[in-house]
Simulated assay, not measured.
Amino acid sequence: MGIIGSSLKPFTTQAYKQGKFLEVSDRDVAGKWAVFFFYPADFTFVCPTELEDLADNYAEFQKLGVEIYSVSTDTHFSHKAWHDTSPAIGKIDFTMLGDPAGVITNNFGVMRDGAGLADRATFVVDPEGVIQFVEITSEGVGRNAVELLRKIKAAQYVAAHPGEVCPAKWEEGETTLAPSLDLVGKI
Rank of each mutant, 00 (worst) to 15 (best):
G2V: 06
G2M: 04
G2S: 14
I3K: 09
S6N: 12
S6E: 13
G19D: 13
D26V: 10
R27V: 07
D28I: 06
D28R: 01
V29C: 12
W33N: 08
F36K: 01
Y39W: 02
F45Y: 07
N57C: 03
Y58K: 04
A59W: 00
A59L: 05
Q62N: 12
L64K: 03
L64Q: 07
E67R: 02
H83F: 09
D84V: 08
P87I: 08
I92R: 04
I92E: 11
D93A: 11
F94K: 02
M96R: 06
D99E: 12
T105R: 03
T105C: 09
F108W: 00
M111R: 05
R112Q: 11
A115I: 09
L117M: 08
L117W: 00
D119Y: 01
R120S: 09
F123V: 08
D126G: 12
P127D: 12
V130K: 06
T137Y: 01
E139W: 02
R143P: 03
V146W: 02
E147G: 14
L148A: 10
L149N: 05
R150N: 12
K151S: 11
I152Y: 01
A154P: 08
A155H: 07
Q156T: 13
A160V: 04
A160D: 15
G163T: 11
G163H: 04
V165E: 09
G173Q: 13
T175G: 11
P179A: 09
L181M: 03
D182S: 13
D182K: 04
